[in-house]
Amino acid sequence: MPVTVTGGQRCWQRRDRAAQLRIWLVWLVGTALFMAAWSFISAQTIWMFVWDSPAQAYDLASRMVNPRWDYFERILWPLWDTINIATLGTLLGVIIAIPIAFLAAHNTTPSRALIRPLALLIIVSSRSINSLIWALLLVLIMGPGILAGIIAIALRSIGFIGKLLYEAIEEVSNEPVEAIEATGASRMQVLSYGIWPQVLPTVAGISVYRWDINIREATVLGLVGAGGIGIQLQASINNLAWNQVTVIFLAILATVFVSEWISARVRHALI
């Protein structure tokens, strides 16, 4: 009990003795676990390589400092592909995620026993697989190219957008929904008049946020053959053309910078 009375004097403490003891115990176990894990990792590490790493990093950096600027025009087209993969993939993801979110939110799902778990399963499985792995699978199934990249991005985005959106749907204010129901509106009309206007800003915000993430993810999809600038990146690394790698990095940096700026502006406009 946080309040104790000793000799008529009331004394307040944040926690009682037992709670305090439990907290100390948690800290003790946590610290011990950390030390054990650290010693295990240390034993597995080849420290010679680690001590060598600053020299290696310096060596690599020195090969990258003189960028091959004329390479830039060769990556413009792949860069455009990358942006398109991200944008079309996001669009496709949003279109699929919206109905799934409505099926998953417990206040809009047609059946809590059957359809809701199914929608949640789709969301979880989409979220649990990274878009690079989706791309790897899709390249195997449908061959290399931009289309595989677009679908990989879309498949990963469905879970992300679906999850955030169904949480937003579950948090809408119930009063307007009740009012629309009271007018004799059908279920679909209640969705489109009572709930959709309430979640619209969230839909736009999440989509732009995901697009921003997808631009970054699309830059690596080429590593597994799913189109975009990643193909050039891999080729340059394989050829040890580090001055080209620098140009690619700078191009990616600039693109991400611009996409970040755009998404910040859009989100700002929505609030």
């Binding site: 009063e175 307007p176 009740e178 009012a179 629309i180 129901e181 009271a182 007018t183 004799g184 008049y193 009572g194 206007p197 309430q198």
Partner: peptide
């Protein structure tokens, strides 16, 4: 429900 109108405390408009 079409035949029964309802008015709410917090107005319950779609903002």
């Amino acid at each position: 429900r079409c035949r029964i109108g309802m008015i709410f405390q917090e107005y319950a408009l779609v903002e």
